[in-house]
Computed example of a mutant assay.
Amino acid sequence: MTADAHTQPQQFGQFTVTTLEGQQLPLSNLAGKVVLIVNTASACGFTPQFAGLQELHAKYASQGLAVLGFPCNQFGSQDPGSNAEIGAFCQKNYGVDFPMMSKIEVNGASADPLFKWLKAEAPGLLGSEAIKWNFTKFLVGRDGRVIRRYAPLDKPESISKDIEEALNT
């Protein structure tokens, strides 16, 4: 463990992320909520999942679910636009009104610290921490612990049961 590892946040609520508008969002503001975190892209075969994510947000936000989208251009350059263009696309095409964050990287040396933590807490297949593609999802419980990681093929509606269970605990 390096000296830097000691200064990195080790709990969900210790991270701060940046919205598409450039505002800082301390995740401690989401304390007590169930949070679904998704790395998104605007020009991907999975992009229609924005509609399902918006449906989850509409159905469960009043019960304590927060959906956060994190645009990423690391997979096939499928989100090359600016933050403003990404926001306009998501709102116009899918009616997204859940918070979208500033574009980030999810893998490699420049990976966002939140995603480094999420991947360590919930590795993928065969223990790999790498995110393989757009629309990988992480469900975080009210206690700030990662409940589960979902593959891009897992449609938002297919995780409703897990969300409901997390909301009821």
Rank of each mutant, 00 (worst) to 15 (best):
M1Q: 08
D4P: 00
A5M: 04
A5L: 10
Q8D: 07
G13I: 03
G13A: 10
V17L: 10
T18W: 10
T18I: 14
T18H: 08
L20C: 06
Q24N: 15
P26C: 15
L30H: 09
G32P: 12
V35R: 02
V35F: 00
L36M: 09
N39Q: 01
T40V: 04
T40K: 03
T40N: 02
S42E: 06
A43F: 14
C44Q: 04
G45M: 05
G45K: 01
T47R: 01
T47F: 09
P48G: 15
Q49P: 01
A51I: 02
A51V: 00
A51Q: 14
G52K: 03
Q54N: 05
E55P: 01
E55H: 08
E55L: 09
L56Y: 02
H57T: 05
H57S: 14
Y60R: 07
Y60P: 09
G64S: 03
A66D: 09
G69L: 05
C72V: 09
N73D: 12
F75R: 12
S77L: 09
S77Q: 15
G81F: 13
A84S: 07
I86M: 02
I86F: 00
G87D: 13
G87P: 06
F89P: 06
V96T: 12
F98L: 09
P99V: 15
S102V: 06
S102R: 13
V106W: 11
N107P: 01
N107R: 11
G108S: 13
G108F: 09
A109R: 15
S110E: 15
A111K: 00
W117S: 01
W117C: 06
W117V: 14
W117K: 08
L118G: 03
A120L: 02
E121G: 04
P123E: 15
G124Y: 02
L125C: 09
L126A: 15
G127E: 07
E129W: 07
A130M: 11
I131A: 08
K132Y: 02
W133F: 08
W133C: 04
F135H: 05
T136K: 05
F138P: 04
L139K: 11
G141I: 08
G141R: 11
D143Q: 10
G144N: 13
G144C: 09
I147C: 12
Y150T: 12
P152T: 00
L153Q: 14
D154Y: 10
D154G: 05
E157T: 07
S158Q: 13
S160M: 06
